[in-house]
Nucleic acid binder design. Structure first.
Length: 541
RNA sequence: GCGCCCAUAGCUCAACUGGAUAGAGCAACUGCCUUCUAAGCAGUAGGUUUCAGGUUCGAGUCCUGAUGGGCGUACCA
């Protein structure tokens, strides 16, 4: 429809003498009395044509030729908006095609043919996933689903580092607990991991190997810990309905020579130099105040170097778009990565970073500072034990990534019944219940007469359903899943109004059949939307 | 000091990327279950969109400055 309106408007504009044709913007007015679609075209033309917007609007409308089967009226309103109203026939034709689409309704070709990779979670295996990782995980997975629904071919990747100081301390922490369990002398490492899960891992080792590891170094402890923690992380992700296609070990970038090659290539371009025993990247060339260390004087790379190599590696794999999901604490690092890859000759427009603000945990009414090392955290598993996976996912998605998310544990636990996710699920379950009853009451003809749907609540609901594909596209493009939630709330709300105003069971068979078709389509839309959010659509509640 | 993000109803947040009278959910108040699920619906109340300027037909949204908060600004990841 939007395309059609743009077409007829631009046809009308050919009758004006314009130096350049303006972009035609169409939007759905907030206030339904302003019609179903509207354009500010006359206002944007006011200046070039040196005429007042309402006069221009009048001329545009005079020049406009439209199909009365699609548009029932065109009006000028306010400062010069041109408002369109859909014809009833159009509504029924569209509804019929939505019914046809079924569980594919909402899909589009916006990103079709594009190979997209999204990297998210990427927590190193030092402990269970916490509520803090939850926002990253759910956001990444949902953006992935949105991209898939707009046609992209998508890979989900988990990037990790199982070497380095953190992992050594982890191994030593397990080692100390292991020795403790066997009653041997042990010294808990400085800054070691204090969580209970460390003891569990040590206990398992003691059960499996007995005293065989008493004289070992920390390596087997690290390996066991890594394996156990990854198994735990995978289980948590699975519980949240998240499946990774790939795990990428930072270590591979060293093994395959990518790290060295990146430094060499940058050096060739004169962007790398040695000073004070370290190797520096000339980030000043890219507008930064200071250059950045790539390799420390100890010979160890800083995290920026593998990050650059990793992104180069991704682009080498042929992705058209690579999306990273980062917490706000990484905000300073990605400009270096972008500088790095564009210096290497890659198109940095192909890397898109989704930054989300921190989750503030509120426990017992107070903000709660978390630390994996100190074992001060709330795990995602604990949270899901309390409120379930659906509520957990929904909670992380309902707000814009760009705003701080306050997660009140007590409220999340208590609020189960009042949580807005139930509003959507309830609407779905309610429709299913009606459909079950209706099947017993009626037997229907083959042909549905959708044109019997003439009540305000009915047409309003139909028009709301139309907006679904656009809601998905908007959420996908902005990488903001909460937009889809807002939309689904509109659907549920429009349905509830319909439910209260229009009975389904008890009216004559033809009308009942038309209303059932509408209810069914609403349920399908809710279900498709919830599927994108990774949330179940229950048939009974 | 410098950079990024944020500031909207008592609380938590929206506002389709500059559009028409700034909207929801909690919390408060008033109604509605012998009829398809009341986990619901209808209504009332609640706002100088932190402040001061600017840009234009039009600003919560853009630019400048101020104030308050978060995160960075390491040869930590």
């Amino acid at each position: 429809m939007t395309e059609y309106l743009k077409q007829i408007l631009s046809d009308a504009l050919t009758k004006f003498e314009l130096d350049e044709t303006p972009e035609i913007q169409l939007e759905a007015p907030k206030d339904p009395t302003h019609g179903d679609a509207s354009t500010n075209l006359a206002m944007t033309l006011a200046r070039p044509l040196r005429n007042n917007p309402r006069a221009i609007a009048t001329q545009i409308i005079e020049a406009l030729e439209y199909d009365e089967r699609k548009i029932s009226s065109v009006e000028i309103a306010g400062p010069g908006f041109i408002n369109f109203r859909y014809a009833e026939d159009y509504l029924y034709d569209e509804l019929a095609s939505i019914i046809e689409e079924g569980e594919a309704f909402g899909k589009s070709e916006l990103n079709s043919g594009k190979k997209v990779q999204i990297e998210f979670v990427s927590a190193n295996p030092t402990g269970p996933l916490t509520v803090g990782h939850g926002r990253n995980a759910v956001l990444g997975d949902t953006v992935a689903r949105l991209m898939e629904w707009t046609g992209a071919e998508l890979d989900r990747e988990y990037y990790f580092n199982n070497a380095g100081r953190q992992m050594r301390v982890l191994g030593q922490s397990v080692q100390a607990r292991y020795l403790e369990i066997l009653g041997k002398d042990s010294e808990f490492p400085e800054g070691g991991y204090e969580g209970e899960y460390i003891k569990d891992i040590a206990q398992e080792l003691a059960d499996e190997k007995g005293v065989a590891l008493v004289d070992s170094d920390w390596t087997p402890f690290k390996e066991k810990a890594e394996q156990a923690i990854f198994a735990d992380i995978d289980a948590t992700l699975k519980r949240m309905n998240i499946h990774m296609d790939n795990h990428f070990n930072e270590h591979d970038l060293y093994e395959n020579g990518d790290i060295e090659s990146v430094v060499a290539r940058l050096r060739e371009k004169g962007l790398v130099y040695d000073a004070d025993g370290a190797t520096w990247f000339k980030t000043t060339e890219f507008g930064k105040e200071k250059d950045t260390v790539l390799i420390k004087s100890t010979g160890e790379p800083t995290y920026r170097l593998p990050d650059i190599a990793y992104h180069a590696n991704k682009l080498d794999r042929g992705y058209d778009m690579c999306i990273d999901v980062f917490g706000a604490d990484h905000i300073a690092t990605y400009p270096d990565v972008l500088s790095g890859i564009s210096a290497l000759g890659y198109d940095k427009e192909k890397v898109d970073v989704v930054i989300y603000q921190f989750v503030t945990i509120v426990k017992d009414g107070k903000p709660f500072k978390m630390s994996t090392r100190k074992a001060n955290f709330v795990t995602l598993d604990e949270l899901m034990d309390e409120v379930g996976a659906d509520v957990t996912r929904f909670f992380f998605l309902m707000r814009s990534p760009n705003t701080h998310l306050e997660f009140d544990i007590a409220q999340a636990k208590e609020a189960g019944e009042k949580n807005p996710v139930f509003y959507l699920q309830y609407a779905h379950a309610r429709i299913c219940s009606i459909l079950r009853k209706a099947e017993e009451e009626y037997s229907f003809k083959i042909e549905v007469q959708l044109n019997l749907l003439k009540e305000d609540a009915e047409t309003a609901l139909i028009k709301t359903l139309f907006k679904f594909p656009k809601a998905i596209q908007s959420a996908a493009e902005a990488r903001e899943p909460h937009r889809l939630i807002n939309y689904l709330n509109d659907v549920a709300s429009a349905f509830t109004t319909f439910y209260h105003d229009c009975r389904i069971i008890g009216v004559d068979a033809d009308l009942a059949q038309a209303r059932i078709a509408l209810a069914k389509t609403t349920a399908q839309t809710l279900k498709n939307g919830l599927t994108i959010l990774g949330i179940t659509a229950p048939e009974r509640m």
